[in-house]
Amino acid sequence: MRFPLYIAKRYLKSKSGNNIINLVTILACLGVMAGTTALFIVLSVFSGIKDYSLSILDVDTPDIRISPIQGKTFLVDDTFIQKIQKTPDSIFYTKILEERAFFKNKDKEEIAYIKGVDSLFNKVTPLDSLVMVGEWFAANSTNTCITEYQLTRKLDLNVYTDLLQIYVPKAGKGYISNPNNAFTTIKPQVVGVISNQNQEENKFVYVPLSLSQQLLSKAPNEVSYVDVALRNDINPSNTIEYLKENFPDYRISKREEINGSFYKILNSEKLIAYLVSLLVVMMVLSNTSGTIIMVIVDKKNDIKTLLNLGAPLKSVRRIFATYGFLLNVIGMFVGLGIGITIVFAQLHYELVMITPSIAYPIAFEWENIWVVCITIILFGALASLLASGRISERFVKKR
C-alpha cells in the first residue's frame, strides 16, 4: 500500500505540464470544500432549529409522565404517593386533571381543554414564567383561572374583571329531558394570561385542581396523569426504570415520548435536509471522478512505464484511487474548517438574525462532524474507485 500512496502523493503535490489538468484539479478540490461546508452548515442549522424548538417544549413538558393504560383517570392513593416518593433521584411531582370543555364569555364561544393543576405544577412545568398579564393563581385559590393568549383574544376576556363560563356535560345515560340540567358549570375569574410559543398550549385553560375535580365530578384524589420533574439535571433513566418496576399498571412516558410526533417531525426534517444536501455532494464528487479520469489520460505514459517495470494493474489503479481519496480528504478538512468557523461566528456574533432580538438558530454538534466525514469519505472513495477502474490493459495499449 505504501507504493500507491507514495506515487499518489507525488502526483498531488507536483504540477502537471497541462495547465487544464491543474485548473480542473483545483476546481474539484474547491467543489469538495464547498460541498462539505454546505452539508455541515445545513446539518448545524437543523440541529439549532431542533434545540430551539425543544427549548420551547421544555417549559411545558415534564421529564416523565405517569398516565393510565386504560381509562382517562386514576386514583392517587397513599400507596401510590409512598412509591413515587421513594424514587432513587430527587424529584418534584404534580397531579393534573384534564378534560375537554366548552368556554363562553358574553357572545364569544370556544371549545378547548380545562387543565386542573395543583400547587406544585410550576415546579415541574414552570408556566408561571410565561405570564404576560396578571399573575398565576395562588396555591389556596378556589375559583380562578389562567388563560392562553390566543384563547383570551378569541373570547375577548379581560383580566380581573371577567368571569369565564366553563361548561362540561354531566355524566350519565339516557335522553336529556331538561337541557338546562345537562351541563355542570363554573365561572372562575380570569387572573392571568400566558403567552406560549408552543401551539399545542393554545387549547388550555388552567384552574386549581380542586375546581376541575368539582366541575368534572371527580374524587379529590382522582387525576388524569402525574407529571414528574428531576430536581437536578441528570439522566432520568434510573427514575424511569424504578417507576416502570413499581407502577406496572401505568404508562411511564419520558419527554421524547410525550411529544413523540413532534420529535419525529424534527428528525424527519433533518433527514430530508441531509438527503437533499447529499445529492449536491454526490454531484460535486462526480467532478472528482472526472478529474481523476483526466489525470489518468494525462499520466498514460507513466502508467505504461509502471506496468513495464512490473507493477500490477491493481496497484496502478490504487494509485489513482488514492489520488482521488486524498483530494477529497483535503477538500473535506478545509471545508469542515470553514463550516465550523461560520457556525461559531453565528453562535458568538449572531451574524444572521430572524428578528432584531432573535438570532438564526444554529448548533455545533460533534455528531454532525462525523456524519459529514463519513459521507465525504464513503462517497468520495466510491467515486475514486469507479474512476480508477477505467484503467485497463486495453486502455494502456491504445495509442
Rank of each mutant, 00 (worst) to 15 (best):
K50W: 00
L57N: 07
D60R: 09
D60Y: 04
D60T: 12
T61F: 12
I69Y: 03
Q70F: 13
Q70D: 09
T73F: 04
F74C: 00
F74E: 03
L75E: 13
D77E: 07
K83T: 14
Q85I: 00
K86R: 15
K86A: 15
P88G: 05
S90N: 11
I91T: 04
T94Q: 08
T94Y: 05
R100H: 06
K106D: 12
K106V: 13
E109A: 05
E109C: 00
I111K: 05
A112I: 03
K115C: 05
K115M: 02
L120E: 09
F121Q: 08
V124E: 07
P126I: 03
L127R: 03
S129N: 10
L130K: 12
V131L: 07
M132H: 04
G134F: 04
G134N: 10
W136N: 07
F137T: 01
A138W: 03
S141L: 00
T142H: 11
L151D: 03
L151S: 05
R153A: 09
L155M: 09
D156W: 00
D156S: 08
L157K: 07
N158V: 06
Y160V: 03
Y160R: 05
D162G: 02
L164F: 06
I166N: 07
V168A: 12
V168Q: 01
P169M: 09
A171H: 05
P179I: 15
N181Q: 12
K187M: 09
P188W: 08
Q189L: 14
